[in-house]
């Protein structure tokens, strides 16, 4: 099964992102293929270690691969040493590669 690519652009402060993260969790639990949550734009903000990062760490434990757009991290001054370990920086190419794999691709 090709799995899912969920592109999350919204950060918790803006609201509207939580249900999408929950969707990632439920898709991972359903074991319908690999699930990647690709953080872009302001969604990378909680990847910098803070109280808000706990949600991402929990999500990773449920089997979701969490990637963060390197450009968005740099744009926001988030250096690699400030990231929680559960989030891996990735080039935008990683999102394209997962689309090419045939993952169902959803944007929030």
């Amino acid at each position: 099964m090709p799995g899912y690519l969920l592109i999350q652009s919204r950060d918790p402060m803006e609201g509207g992102g939580e249900s999408f993260d929950e969707l990632a969790r439920s898709l991972a639990s359903a074991k319908s293929g690999p699930v990647t949550l690709f953080l872009v734009e302001n969604a990378v903000l909680p990847a910098r270690k803070s109280a808000a990062s706990a949600r991402l760490a929990e999500l990773a434990k449920s089997g979701v691969e969490i990637l963060a757009d390197e450009f968005a991290l740099r744009e926001r001054g988030i250096s690699r040493d400030r990231l929680i370990p559960e989030v891996k920086p990735a080039a935008i190419d990683a999102a394209v590669d997962r689309m090419v794999e045939g993952r169902k691709t959803l944007w929030n």
Binding site: D11, M13, E14, N42, L45, F71, R74, E75, R76, G77, S79
Partner: peptide, 14 residues
């Protein structure tokens, strides 16, 4: 306020 506080972060580079 909110995520706009990040605008004051040193080292932003796009």
């Amino acid at each position: 306020t909110e995520n706009a506080v990040n605008y004051a972060t040193e080292g932003q580079d796009c």
